[in-house]
Design a protein around this nucleic acid. Sequence first.
DNA 1: CGCCCAGTTTTGAGTAAGTATAATCTTGAG
DNA 2: CTCAAGATTATACTTACTCAAAACTGGGCG
Lengths: 161, 161
Amino acid sequence: MHEPISLATLRVAIDPERLALLGDDLRAAGLRATRPRELLYSILKAIGGHRSVDDLLGLLAQVDETLPRMSAYNVIADLERVGLVRRSGAGGSRAVLYEVKADNHHHFVCRSCQAVFDIPADTPPAIPDEHHLPGLIEESEIIYRGLCRDCVAIETAANDE
Amino acid sequence: MHEPISLATLRVAIDPERLALLGDDLRAAGLRATRPRELLYSILKAIGGHRSVDDLLGLLAQVDETLPRMSAYNVIADLERVGLVRRSGAGGSRAVLYEVKADNHHHFVCRSCQAVFDIPADTPPAIPDEHHLPGLIEESEIIYRGLCRDCVAIETAANDE
DNA sequence: CGCCCAGTTTTGAGTAAGTATAATCTTGAG
DNA sequence: CTCAAGATTATACTTACTCAAAACTGGGCG
């Protein structure tokens, strides 16, 4: 369900200079720059996409940077709170997925394999009538659901047998 | 996080006549009309909203209709497969939530209490450029994120102390 | 520079939600 | 009535996440 990440990418992600730079981002966001935070933020930024906490820990472990799971949950919660990372609302998979907050884009979710794809956002979604709103909108995205190309292929193959 | 459901509503949901009617829906969708399916479909339809499997079992238990959890998961998976029920993509809460498939609407998710609200859909979201698509779109919705009125009140109260 | 302590990380135990497997029951076509 | 496909249930297990409390540390201050 995820393309493999090269070891080279992972090694770049934990380069001390890079970590120091990202540490500045953390301080700018109002967080103390600690190693677990630098590592997790760096790797999520390096590999991109929509990842679970366990994905991130697993990748870090591949380059001998092991962290307790609890630390990762704490760190991700902090990053989310200060707005460096957002929960990917796409849902579908069991685990909660996160992505670095960047320019707006929408999401396509495959109903079969649950993979999440980014869709460039040319236009932001329409804002509904004031009186329908149950609160204060802070951001919005479109979620497209359907079958990704791979799963379309699998389904047609199954139907032709 | 959920307004309580009245016992009266629950009793209506398990009325034998109603179940028989919904049984027709099940058969029309290509499923055999069994009691667990009628019960779960009926109660989700009766109470509306976005519910987890355990929510539904708990409500049924209140009117002495207990089902094994495994049955509920099987039933919901079947209902989803034939399109009577959809996974609510809103995410946020730990459990997967389901809703009966009805006319299109969008969702507002509170980032604090994770409550999900329906927003009437006047217009369907725009379809992105063909060549950006990673597959076949079957449906789409807009997800608005922010703070619901209750949580806005809580936050302003906390800031004023 | 070195001390301090609120903010972080870590440890270990616990829980909720969902999955796997296989046995048993039901139902309707023939 | 029979039997196989379909549906339900029991049991055990895994995964993703939470909680509480102890241990540690980044960075402001003297």
